[in-house]
Design a protein around this nucleic acid. Structure first.
Lengths: 335, 335
DNA sequence: AATAACTATGTAACCGGTACCACATAAGTT
DNA sequence: AACTTATGTGGTACCGGTTACATAGTTATT
C-alpha cells in the first residue's frame, strides 16, 4: 500500500501539501495539485482511513442498530440508509440487538472504540438515558421508529395514531360494521399508538367492545394467526380487521384461510408498514410508512450533525399513506 | 476518552506492560495485571481500534457484500454472519452491490482503505480475477452462493443440482405427471444448476418437453407470476411446478390463484431456498438451503484465514433438504 | 515605500496503540 | 561459580494520516 509519504516523495512535495490536496483545504497551486493527483493515481494511492480516524478525523463509518434484520421492515430501512450513507461516502455497520439491552450496551462500547461517527438506532429496549449517555460519549444518535418525548433526541417516527385511524376509517368506508384490531406488543409505543388510532376511529361506534382488541406478544406471523383465531372465537361476526403490522396481517390471513373465511368478501383486512409484501394472496391493503424516506432523512440529518450543524433535537413525525390492495376491496357479487 | 498512557500513568507501569495485559501476550506479573486491570476499569478505558488497526493489527471489521438486502435470502445470511462475527468480536459492514460491477469495485477500494479484515461476498457479477485481485491486496475473501471452478477461492454453495432433482422427484412421488420448471436468470450459475437437476429428474419422462421450462429475468415475485402464466398457456395440463426460488414460487402461486387453479389439489408447487416464508397460504414446500449454516461456516473459515491458518481454497458444497409443506401435499378427496 | 494580506509550501508534533529491543532479576544447569 | 534460560518491565520507533506553526514570495492597500 502506498502511503501519503510515497506520494509526497514521488511528486516532490511535502506530505502537508499532499494532505491539502486530499482534503481540498488550504492553498495549493493548480499545477502542484495536478502533479500530486498524477502521483496518487500512478501509485494507486488510497488514504488509510484508520490513520485518518486516529488523527482525529471521521472514520467514515456509521452504525445501524436494529432488533432483527430478519424482520422485513428492517432490510427496507437498511437499504435506504446504506444507499444514503454510500452517497455521502460513509459505510454502514450492521448491528442486530434482539432488543436485548445487554447486547445494545456491548455494541455501544464497540461503537466508541471504533470511533464510529454516528448511530441510527431502532430500539424498543433502550431508554432515553442510554441514548443520551452515548451522545455524551460524543456519538451523535438518531432514533427511528421510536421517540423519547421531551428528551433532546432526534427521531423519525411515523404518525402511527393517524395511520391506525386511517386504516379503521377505511374499513368503515368499505362497509365494515364490526372491526377488530390485532395489536402488537404493548411494550412498543408504536403498537399503543396504532391502537389508539383504532379506538379513535371506532370507539364511539355502537358495536364497539374492548374485547375486539387482541394483543400479540410479538410482531410476527404466528402471533397474528393466534390473535385472529382468538378474535373469531370471541366475535364470529367480525367483518373487518386492522392488524398492527403487515406480518401479523399475514398471520391473520392464514387463520382466516384455515377457517374458510373469505378475504375480502366476508372479512376485510388492513395491515400496517407498507412492506412490499407482494408475496401473499390476496395482496394486503396496508398503511404505508415512508420507510425509505425515513432512512434517507435520518441519514441526511446525521450528516448535518456530523458537520457540526446545530439541529433541532426532537421527533419528526412522518405522514403515512393508505395503500388499497385486494384484501380490503369491496367485492360486487353478481346478482 | 482514556488512553493507554492514562492507564499506564494511573497504574504506575509503562504502556508496554499495559499493552501486554491488553493482548494477554508476553510476561506480566499477576499482581501487576490486577492493578492494571483495576486502572482500566476505573478509567472506563476501551482501546482505540483505530489506533490498533493503524499499528498493523486487525480492524475487527469484516464486510458482507450482497446484491440487495431486500431480497429475503440475504437478511437470513446477514443475520447468521453477524451473529457469528459478533461471537468472534468482529463487526460487519453491509454493502449492497446491486450486482453492479462498478459499485463492487468502489466498495473494494473502501475495504482496502478501511483495512477491513475480510470479505464475505455473494455476487454474480464479479469474476474470479476481481476476487483474486482483492486477495492480492491482502484481504481474504469468501464467496457464498457462487463458486469459481478451479480458481483458488474459498466458497460455500448449496448443492443446487441435487436440490433441483430432489424437488422434481418429490413432485413425481406426489403423483405429478407433467412438471414444469420456472428457471431463474440464466446468468446465475445456481439457476442453471437447479434447472439441470430438474432435467436430470424428468428429462427422460415420456411427457418431457423443453417448453416446460420458462425463464425469468430475475429472482422476484413478478417474474414468477409471468413465467407461470406463460407456462399454463403453453401447457394447460401441468400438474406440478418446480420454481427456481421461493419468491418466484410465490409469484407462481399468485398466477395460479388468479387462474383459479387450486394448489395443491390441481397443481403442486415446490420452491427453492427455504426462506421462512410463513406468510403465504398455502405454505410453500421448498428445498431448504442451510443458509444459517453457510453463514456460520463462512465466518468460521474467514476467522481461520485471518489467523493465518492455511485453508483449502475450494468450493464447499452444502447439502440441501426437502421441506414439505402444504403446496405439494397429496390431498385425499372424500369419496 | 512600508505594511498588510494573500498564496504556496515545508517541518514536525501529534493521535493511541504495537512490538522490538534493552535491561534487570530470579531460577535452573553444568 | 559461571552460564543459560525464564520472567518481568520500560523505552521508544513505528503505523499513516492531520494540522499548527514557520517561512517566503506575491499582490493590494495606504
Amino acid at each position: 500500500m502506498a502511503t501519503i509519504r510515497d506520494v509526497a516523495k514521488m511528486s516532490g512535495f511535502s506530505v502537508a501539501t499532499v494532505s491539502r490536496v486530499l482534503n481540498k483545504k488550504g492553498y495549493v497551486n493548480a499545477a502542484t495539485e495536478k502533479s500530486i493527483v498524477a502521483a496518487m493515481s500512478a501509485l494507486n494511492y488510497t488514504p488509510s482511513i484508520a490513520a485518518r480516524s486516529l488523527a482525529g478525523k471521521s472514520s467514515g463509518t456509521i452504525a445501524l442498530m436494529v432488533p432483527d434484520i430478519l424482520n422485513p421492515f428492517f432490510p427496507e430501512l437498511a437499504r435506504a440508509i446504506e444507499d444514503a450513507a454510500n452517497g455521502y461516502g460513509y459505510s454502514v455497520i450492521l448491528c442486530n440487538s434482539d432488543n436485548d439491552l445487554q447486547k445494545e450496551m456491548n455494541y455501544f462500547d464497540m461503537l466508541v472504540s471504533k470511533k464510529v461517527d454516528g448511530l441510527i438506532v431502532a430500539s424498543y429496549s433502550l431508554g432515553p438515558d442510554q441514548i443520551l449517555n452515548l451522545k455524551k460519549r460524543s456519538i451523535p444518535v438518531i432514533a427511528i421508529d421510536n421517540h423519547f418525548g421531551a428528551h433532546p433526541i432526534v427521531s423519525f417516527v411515523s404518525d402511527n395514531r393517524a395511520g391506525g385511524a386511517m386504516a379503521t376509517r377505511h374499513l368503515l368506508e368499505q362497509g365494515c360494521r364490526k372491526i377488530a384490531h390485532i395489536c402488537g406488543p404493548m411494550s412498543i409505543v408504536a403498537s399503543r399508538e396504532r391502537c389508539l388510532g383504532y379506538e379513535e376511529a371506532c370507539g364511539t361506534q355502537p358495536w364497539f367492545l374492548p374485547s375486539l382488541i387482541a394483543t400479540s406478544d410479538d410482531f410476527h406471523v404466528e402471533g397474528g394467526t393466534r390473535a385472529m383465531a382468538e378474535l373469531l372465537k370471541r366475535h364470529p361476526d367480525i367483518d373487518g380487521v386492522f392488524a398492527g403490522n403487515d406480518l401479523m396481517a399475514c398471520g391473520a390471513l392464514k387463520a382466516l384461510y384455515r377457517l374458510r373465511r373469505k378475504v375480502p368478501e366476508e372479512i376485510k383486512l388492513v395491515g400496517f408498514d407498507g412492506l412490499a409484501m407482494s408475496t401473499v394472496v390476496p395482496e394486503l391493503s396496508t398503511i404505508a410508512q415512508p420507510i425509505r424516506e425515513m432512512g434517507t432523512q435520518a441519514m441526511d440529518y446525521l450528516i448535518r450533525m456530523l458537520n457540526g450543524e446545530r439541529v433541532e433535537e426532537r421527533a419528526h413525525v412522518m405522514d403515512v399513506t393508505l395503500v388499497v390492495k385486494q384484501s380490503s376491496q369491496i367485492v360486487h357479487t353478481r346478482g
